[in-house]
Design a protein around this nucleic acid. Structure first.
Lengths: 222, 222
DNA sequence: AAAACAGAAATTATCTATAATTTTAGATCG
DNA sequence: CGATCTAAAATTATAGATAATTTCTGTTTT
């Protein structure tokens, strides 16, 4: 994962914070204090403020004027919202990407699927899953669309890590295989329909809250 | 249009610059120089830099590290891309908004359509058009989706103003009327299909370039 | 004991100053 | 005459300092 040493400091900070927010290392609703962050990264708060603006644009943080910025909270409604947006946009991207998909790309996507099935933890499953989606969508050649989808994937990953904090049981992704088969046969329509349904599959899981009670957690598992 | 006096300075600057970029007052590719902007708004460049980050997030500006930021350029490909994204997302929003649409809202949307038909210049037509779309989509209650659609509308307006710099001939929007009729009859599916087609209608218009030659300009007219 | 208040501490937002990089213009060389 | 190098100017990026606002905490009042 290129650490981009030529990035501006603000970009480096925003990437690092995005990683923590997505992984759940920083709780939703937690305040992000510019001086503390600045001190940690050995900079002044100007780049930190710019990093905050980036996080805001990605929907990972919310900022109230004069009251600072906090990690964005989310609920079941937002999980559903992101799932539906992903369905609409990934299907669109796939329809444009399909004519440009080579068997080399599809082979790589199959590799990613296998890697996902073998994953023993959420983190590596998510990485493989994201790789699969990116591989089959990137050839659409629509940069704005791809950027928006990336942000939605970041949100998805956040929901996922919040629900499956540690436990994860390996599972075989039939949808990915069905999509690849359809694409290999040139059946774009079938692949698109499966993809649209696939990313809207919302997993449920009981998790223990801080107060000891159990509530249900939701996440997009696709 | 609330000028938001309680906004932070950075927000005020970004709104002002967004307005100029969308209206075409600043050319695509033109450099945005932080000191000049800072001087104009009587501030230092710290808030200006934050404003730049906001414009970047909206896709109105692009920034290259250490080389500054320039107004985003665009081509026919991006016009098409934005049109397709709008189609996908506005249809999604409409499907969710439909059950919550009241006849009061639909009446307001009809007012907006009439205002658009009466418009003698692009600027007021665009405003009315945007009002129509926002009215029928807002009740979907999906904030992230609506925010993304708003950014796409800003891009659309930019394409529009670039093509129809001054001339504009009044036209009757049959699509808007068809959508309203379908919604009044509770025929969500028909309304959604019409909307999806509507926002993908790309107008063409010959414009004179600086060098005197005429080229064709494209814009989303819906 | 709960609510309201006042003062202190912390934090955000902005400004001024400095360092580093890039662009521009001019001069020199082939 | 055009290309290339060099130095100055302009511009970006970051740092350090200041003002204004919010949050916190302890005390007083009912």
């Amino acid at each position: 994962m290129a650490k981009g040493t030529d990035d501006t400091i603000a970009v480096r900070i925003s990437k690092a914070l995005a990683d923590r927010i997505i992984s759940g290392a920083i709780e939703p609703g937690a305040r992000l204090r510019q001086d503390h962050v600045a001190e940690e990264f050995n900079t002044s708060h100007v780049p930190v403020r710019e990093a905050f603006r980036r996080l805001e644009a990605q929907g990972l943080a919310v900022s109230e004027p004069r009251r600072g910025v906090r990690v964005a909270a989310f609920d079941l409604g937002e999980v559903k919202e992101v799932a539906e947006m992903r369905a609409a946009l990934e299907v669109l991207a796939l329809r444009h990407a399909a004519p440009h998909l080579t068997s080399a790309i599809l082979d790589l996507a199959e590799e990613a699927t296998k890697a996902g099935d073998k994953s023993r933890d959420v983190r590596s499953w998510e990485e493989a899953n994201r790789a699969f989606h990116r591989l089959i969508l990137a050839p659409c050649g629509m940069p704005r669309l791809l950027a928006t989808i990336d942000d939605l994937h970041a949100a998805s990953a956040r929901f996922l890590f919040a629900a499956w904090r540690s436990e994860w049981e390996a599972r075989t992704d039939q949808d990915h295989r069905a999509i690849l088969t359809a694409l290999r046969q040139g059946n774009t329509e079938s692949a698109a329909v499966t993809l649209g349904r696939h990313v809207q599959w919302i997993g449920r899981k009981p998790v223990k809250t801080a107060s000891g009670a159990t509530r249900e957690a939701f996440a997009i598992v696709g």
